[in-house]
Every structure is written in C-alpha cells, then in structure tokens.
Design a protein around this nucleic acid. Structure first.
Lengths: 339, 339
DNA sequence: TTGTACGCGTTATCAG
DNA sequence: CTGATAACGCGTACAA
C-alpha cells in the first residue's frame, strides 16, 4: 500500500504538501497540486484511516450496537434503514456491531467501538441494565446514546417512548368498546419493554375498576409461535375472553392463526402492540389493530442529538415519544365468546 | 483517556513492560506484572485500537457490506445471525457497513473498510458488476470475498449457488406432476439473481418441450405486493395456469393472498422459490413449496475460507452450492383452473 | 507557498 | 527480565 510519503516523492514535494491537498487545508500552488494528484493516481494511494484518525483524534464514524436477538422482523429493518440514511446525510459512517446475547457481550461491543475511537456510539440495549449503562456513560468521554431505555442519571443520553402508556391506551380502547375480559400475551419478561407493556395492561384494567385475572395473562417470548401457544393454552383452560392484546406484532399474528384454527370468529377483538405497521400486510386480518411504535422518530432524534453533541457540545434535554394506536376497523363490542 | 505511558508511570515501569503484560508476549516478573495490573485498574486504561492496529498492521476485524435494500426479510436476519456467531467463534469482530443503493456506494463501503485496515471484507453485492468486483479484488492486498456472484477472474474469492438450476428444479417438479401452464413472477431483472431464476424457469420448460408463454411471465420486484399485483394481472388478462412459481418468498406470499381473494382454490399449485424456510410460518398455506437457498452454508463457507486465507495463506478452490426443494405437501396435478 | 519536525498511542527490536 | 528507541502513516504548528 502506497503511503503519503511515496506520493510525496513521486510528486517531488514533501508529505506536508500532499497532506494539504488531501485535506484541503492550507495553501498549495496549482502546479504542485496537480503534481500531487497525478502522483496519487499513479501510486494508487489510499489514506490509512488508522493513522489519520489517530492523528486527528476523530473518525467521522458512529457505532451502533444491536443484540442479534433483534435481527428479526421489520423493526430491525426499519431501524437500520433509517440509521443508514440519516448518517449518509450527515456524511458520517455507521458501523454496526453485534451485541450478541448477554449484558457482558453488549458491554464488550460498546467497548470495542469506543476503543476504535468512534466519535460516538448508539446502543439499543437488550440485556444491559439502566444502571450499568449509566455507569458506562459516566466512564467515557465519547457520547453513548441509549434507545428505548430511560436512564436515571443521563437524561440527555436516552431516547425512549412510554411503553406502558402505549400499552395502556390500547387496552383502554378495548374497554371503552365494552370489553371486560381481555387476554394478554406478554413479551419476554426479562426485558424491560416486556414488563412495561404488561404493566400498562394491568394499569388500564385497574384504572377502570376491572380486576386483573392472572388466568388471562399468558407468557410469551416475542415469537409468533408463542402467540399460537398462548391462544391454545387459553382455549385448553376454557378461559373466557372477548378481546386479546399481544405484546408485539409477531405474537399477534400467531394468535390470530390459532384463533382461526379454533374457529373463533374474530369478534374476539385483537389488539396488537408492536412496532411498525404489521409486517404481514398481505395477510392483514379484519379486527386487527396495532400500536405503531415511533421507531423512525426515535432513531432520528437519537442521531440528531448525537450529532449535536459532537458538533456543538451543547446538550439537549430528553424527550419522550409515544406510540400511536392504529385502528384497522371498527372494534365494536361483538358477541361474547364463550370458549 | 489514559494511555499506556501513564500506566507505565503509575506502575513505575516502562511502556514496553506494560505492552508486554498486555499482549502476553515476552517475559515479565510476577511482581511488575501485578504492579501493571493495578495501574491499569487505577487509571481505567483502555488500549487505543487505532494505534495498536497501526503498529501491528492487523486488526482482528472483518468487514461486511450489504446493501440496505436487503435489510428486509428473514434472509438478512439469517445472514447476520450466522455471520456474527461464526465470527464470535473465530474471536474476530464483524463490522457491518451499509452498501446503500448504488454501485458507487457499494464500492465506497468496501473502500472504507479497507482503509480502516480490516483484515478482510465480505460483500453481498447488489449493484456492483462482477467485472468491477474482479477489478477491486485485483487492486487490493486484503482478501475480499463475494457472496452470491460468480467471478471470472477470482474463483477462490466467490461463493455462490446455482440459482438457475435451483429455479429449474422447482419448475421441473411441477412439470413432472403434470403441470404445463406454469406462471412465473420474476424478481427485479436488474439483479443477476432475478435474471438467473427466470432463466431457470425458461430452461426447464424448454427442456421438456413446453413453449415459453410470455403472457405467463409477470415482472416483480421481490416485494409481497408485486406478488399480489402479478396474480391480479394474470387474472385480469384471463390467463390459464395450474401452477405458479414466484421468485422469492415474499412475492409468493402476496401471490397466495391474491389467489385466495380471487377464490382460486389452491390446487393451482404454488411453488415458492426463495430463501430460507418461509418466514410466515403461522400462515403457511397448503400447497406451498419452497426452495431453500443455502444461506447458512454459504456464509459459513465464506467465513471459513476468509479465515483460511488470513491464517494460512493457502487458497482453496471455489465451490458451488445448490438450493434444496422443500415440498410442503403433495403437489398433485389437481383440476385445471380456468380463470 | 512550502518543508521540517514532532506528536498521536502501540508494538517490536535490540541492547543491557 | 527490562528499558530505550525506532517504526506505523498521517496531521500540523512552526519556521523559512
């Protein structure tokens, strides 16, 4: 690999001059400038970013850490698409590294990006606790922004939506329509998101004076098959419910499938809490509603805030996003489904 | 950020010694070793990978370039999952950067990774031509492996499957079952994969002496909605067909949806050519078959070969993978569907 | 306008 | 076993 020094020799100038035409900083005569360009072409020179970043102490690069358990579904897709596009506009490079499947590995991934001297890193955590993240942020100079968690000590470093409220609103909609026996399929309860959505469900019921029936709550792990299993379990146990809320799109789809198999006509309302519009558009089913989580807005806010920190240094306050309930068709009360 | 020099001072040794305990190379007394560890902990030292990689001329890092138009569906998921897991076993870091949406940008992404001195890079191209890739590979020292393309000049640098053959086999299956009027939904024809699958369809027909009816070929762009539109078009034009092959899973799903809407009982066989098992498991529909493309095997072969090049230097020959037809249920001939 | 010389943080060579 | 010291490739004050 040709270095800047070889280019300098070929062009008959000093490395400083080459460096100047490369960076555009400083004056250099037209004549030498052309010599340099020729030499660059002749040698096939490429700048060594390691050396450059080491010298400049900056890399125009931003790291992103995502657990590979999230490499699934349209949520990840949307996240990546928008991140990439926004970074492109900013003229910076986005580097994705796998957060694997444990807190330790998520931490290592962040550390790697930091050691590589990325200007900043964004993490969509799955296993790290908020306290651990608060610590990590406190220990480093580079800004580390966190999506989908609320941190206690670093308000301006986290971007999140009110998961509990979004979940509660979906349930409240159903209650307003006259439903009282509302089943709920949880997400993984080792994830804060899963817990918050469950909490929203319970809060909505209690607020309306409806007793929480633990028998109507079935544990899931975000996968479609969990949705099917949940409905099968409810049916096997002979539970009564006229509506069902699943903690994300995938499980809702599974639930719908199972409902159909059990020949349960779907006035048994189904509210889907999840990300994005349901990814199975061609199979959209009547009576399917959804809470659209603001992925797009959050990633945009995250990147904008990060850039602001890098450029300006001035920090903005936190901001909370909220999910939006998408009603696909009238969710009228319908007949009680006695299974 | 504490440097190795500060650690040395705190520990009362030279930087060379610190470097030794860090790398594990060279002898160092137990006493000093402990001093160093203490100093590291005290200063919160973290190695600067830019400096390290610059000095070592190697980073245990491999870059991966994928166009963001592929950030969708289970194919990408599987690709990322496996890549990450395999790299993890190898003790190397995987860096994903966006290939965006043009040949120029794909080239830039590769260049970036190269400039960052990744040990090697893997690209899953979408817009770059094979000739361009041959050039790129020829111009660089670091190994650049290509998935899903067959290169003319660098056999050992590409891993691919025989798309045309896989496609042809699916069609041949249908022909063997007695089908003669087989519709085909193409992928984007600006992609080699799309063209090869179409070629396979035509080849299979011709081999059996069945004339290719251009009216049964409908253009799609890999998306579910294209599958729906294609079926709608076929119906609107009053085409006769007893079987349908879609160029990937997503379009097959859309096609199935449309077939259902048109009340076409599905003895109109549907063969799906696509990647992976169909991702919509809960909605699997009778008479749906699929060609499982060997993503897993290909990415594994790619990484193994790359590692071999980096470690050994000895190069292996190319190897072609083939898709495997997954028959979900008997694809018996069924009644002719006269639309 | 251009060149010299030093620094960036590590590794690696070579005396001691 | 340990410590100077020279790379690694590039940016940049400083001097000319």
């Amino acid at each position: 690999m040709a270095t800047i020094l070889e280019v300098a020799k070929v062009a008959g100038v000093s490395k400083a001059t080459v460096s100047r035409v490369l960076s555009g900083n400083g004056y250099v005569s037209q004549e030498k400038r052309e010599k340099v360009f020729e030499a660059i072409a002749a040698t096939g020179f490429r700048p060594n970013l390691l050396a450059r970043n080491l010298a400049t102490k900056s890399s125009q690069t931003i790291g992103l850490v995502i657990t590979n358990t999230l490499y699934t579904g349209s949520y990840f897709t949307e996240l990546m698409q928008h991140s990439a596009r926004l970074m492109e506009q900013q003229g910076r490079q986005l580097l994705l590294v796998d957060g694997k499947h444990s807190a330790e590995e998520e931490r290592a991934a962040i550390q790697f990006l930091l050691d590589l001297r990325c200007d900043g890193v964004i993490i969509y955590p799955r296993f790290l606790t908020t306290d651990e993240m608060d610590n990590i942020i406190a220990q480093h100079n580079q800004p580390i922004l966190v999506i989908n968690r609320r941190l206690r000590q670093h308000d301006s470093y986290c971007i999140y939506s009110d998961q509990q409220r979004s979940s509660a609103e979906a349930v409240e909609q159903l209650i307003a329509l006259g439903h009282r026996d509302i089943a709920f399929i949880t997400g993984s309860l080792d994830s804060p998101t899963g817990r918050e959505r469950l909490a929203g469900y319970k809060a909505a019921l209690q607020k309306q004076g409806i007793a929480v029936d633990e028998g109507l709550i079935v544990a899931g792990k975000w996968q479609a098959q969990n949705g099917m299993a949940a409905v099968n379990a409810l049916v096997a146990q002979g539970r009564n419910f006229t509506a069902l809320v699943a903690s994300n799109d995938d499980m809702a789809v599974g639930a719908l499938k199972a409902l159909a198999q059990h020949q349960i006509a779907v006035p048994a309302q189904v509210a889907v809490i999840g990300f994005d519009d349901i990814p199975l558009a061609p199979f959209t089913i009547p009576a399917l509603s959804s809470v659209k989580m603001p992925v797009t807005e959050m990633i945009q806010e995250t990147i904008e805030r990060l850039i602001a920190m890098l450029d300006g240094g001035e920090m903005r306050n936190d901001k909370m996003f909220s999910g939006e309930l998408i009603v696909r068709e009238s969710m009228g009360p319908g007949p009680h489904n006695n299974l």
